[in-house]
């Protein structure tokens, strides 16, 4: 078992607040606390980017924003514009939900195309994470979608939205292991959705996750002390 000292935990965590209807004050306090703990980034909704930007100004903590979240059911052009709008507002990184229906239909070229559309717009300066929603897919669909997203230029493949309304199962180390076995070494893997304890965090890091998405970042750091 790898110990907590092997990883700089705070630097692999996107500390996340995607609470429906959270107020600016609530998100502002969340961001301030996240900055204080030195997380790699805060992950927020697009309408909270200005708040997050203000609270991270002059710090190393980056701002990540979710696009086409949580259903991914927008056209590629809409996703492109939404992503660009997020960057304009001050987001550093984009967490994009792929068109999960296309994955379920085996239309993997369509996924490559939409990811490429967004990645081309963002350029090299902004990391693009693509959420493939593993819990809704078969193993073959996971492989197809992940490889398609990588081919389209995704910097990181992200497992799940963790959207409560869909009652999705949690991401498992096996999910991460599968992705690690098929993706290029330089493609990152973000484990998210039910990764809410230190134990779970270490388990997914041990099998190849390079980033963690969780709303429990502070509790995880505290547990590692």
């Amino acid at each position: 078992m790898t110990t907590t000292t092997t990883y700089d935990l705070k630097q692999v965590i996107d500390n996340t607040n995607l609470t429906m209807g959270a107020t600016r004050k609530e998100v502002g306090e969340f961001v301030t606390a996240s900055v204080k703990r030195g997380f790699y980034s805060v992950c927020v909704f697009p309408n909270m980017i200005p708040t997050a930007r203000r609270m991270t100004a002059g710090t190393k903590t980056k701002v990540a924003a979710v696009v086409s979240f949580p259903l991914g059911a927008d056209t590629p052009e809409v996703k492109r514009y939404e992503a660009l709008n997020c960057i304009e507002l001050g987001a550093d990184e984009i967490d994009l939900v792929i068109n999960v229906a296309e994955a379920r239909m085996g239309h993997f070229d369509a996924i490559t195309a939409e990811v490429r559309t967004v990645k081309n717009a963002l350029g090299r300066d902004h990391i693009l994470k693509t959420i493939i929603e593993v819990p809704l897919l078969t193993k073959d669909q996971v492989i197809g979608a992940a490889v398609a997203a990588e081919k389209g230029g995704a910097d990181i493949v992200k497992t799940s939205t963790g959207f409560k309304g869909l009652q999705l199962r949690a991401t498992t180390p096996e999910d991460v292991q599968l992705l690690r076995s098929i993706l290029k070494p330089q493609t990152g893997i973000k484990a998210s959705g039910g990764v809410s304890t230190l134990e779970k965090t270490l388990a997914v890091l041990n099998v190849g996750a390079t980033r963690i998405g969780t709303s429990s970042g502070i509790a995880i750091l505290d547990a590692a002390k």
Binding site: L18, G21, N47
Partner: peptide, 12 residues
Amino acid sequence: PLGAMTTVAKVI
């Protein structure tokens, strides 16, 4: 369903 997109995104 979360109502958290920006005005620009909504118009698009």
